[in-house]
């Protein structure tokens, strides 16, 4: 299984930032979602960030909330999500970061979850509502199972805390570009450059930026600021929403968009 270290190492040598689209697993249904994710890989996704839907996603704006509702209505469960990941991995060995809310991991049993997620092909786990203060509830079992850990840094994170977050992170630091929940924004946050710069001075762990990135020029600016990866969530998820019932057009819109970003990133 390809590791983050290999992928980000290779990209650093190429001088290019990773393209990392985010999808809610099973949105709008298992098979369509699988088709979309495979198409995203074909369009040049270097890493995948995949979420398992939760009933109360407090870190998500309307676009990803609706995606979660679609996935759950279509019967998505944690077990099926792991099966989904296995199918993606069988298609192509792309690193997969899992994004979840804590209660789903907690109810599954943290250790068992980490073992099964790793077996399914997951590279890292990011629990949206688990900060480094409580990280020990997941970090130990995750590492033992062979999973990398990913934690978030936000524009209001103090420098000292940033250092602790970077130290607890083995996969990549998920840098949140704005104060707010997920969602496309027209303008790139003015805080990104400074944030990435500060992080890069503090750590060698790859730094990826997400939340609110919706255009090729945003991706370019983030890469110029020194980020190792660009995470695009709500924008691609909105393309699923806009093409419900038309899987062909859905895939076309998403691959076209991701292809443009990939070109803009130099790739």
């Amino acid at each position: 299984m390809k590791s983050y270290r290999e992928v980000f190492g290779q990209l650093r040598r190429e001088g290019r930032a990773a393209l990392i689209p985010f999808f809610v697993i099973g949105d709008p249904d298992f098979e369509t979602s699988l088709g979309v994710v495979k198409a995203a890989v074909d369009a040049g996704a270097d890493v995948l960030e995949l979420g398992i839907a939760f009933s109360d996603p407090i870190a998500d704006g309307p676009t990803i909330q609706k995606a979660g509702i679609r996935a759950m209505r279509a019967g998505m469960t944690v077990a099926r999500a792991l099966e989904f990941i296995g199918r993606v991995k069988a298609y192509k060995d792309v690193p997969i970061g899992l994004l979840m809310y804590y209660n789903l991991v907690y109810q599954y049993g943290v250790e068992r979850f980490c073992v099964n997620a790793h077996a399914a092909g997951v590279n890292s786990i990011l629990v949206a509502d688990l900060s480094i203060d409580d990280a020990d509830e997941v970090a130990g079992p995750a590492r033992k199972a062979g999973l990398d850990t990913v934690f978030m840094v936000t524009p209001n994170t103090a420098e000292q805390r940033m250092t602790r977050i970077a130290a607890a992170t083995t996969g990549f630091v998920y840098t949140v570009s704005v104060l707010g929940v997920t969602g496309s924004r027209d303008e790139l946050s003015g805080q990104v450059e400074g944030l990435v710069g500060r992080l890069k001075r503090l750590t060698d762990v790859p730094v990826c930026v997400g939340f609110g990135i919706s255009r090729p020029e945003h991706a370019v600016a983030v890469a110029r600021a020194g980020a190792d990866g660009v995470i695009i969530g709500s924008k691609v998820v909105s393309m699923i929403e806009q093409n419900l019932g038309a899987p062909g057009a859905m895939k076309e819109a998403i691959t076209g968009f991701l292809g443009d970003i990939r070109v803009a990133l130099g790739g």
Partner: peptide
């Protein structure tokens, strides 16, 4: 804040990072 705001094992502050400083 670890271990503060606990009643036995209950409580804590399971929130996204952005809310921790606040």
């Amino acid at each position: 804040m670890k271990n503060r705001g606990r009643f036995g094992d209950f409580g804590g502050f399971y929130v996204p990072e952005v809310l921790i400083p606040v």
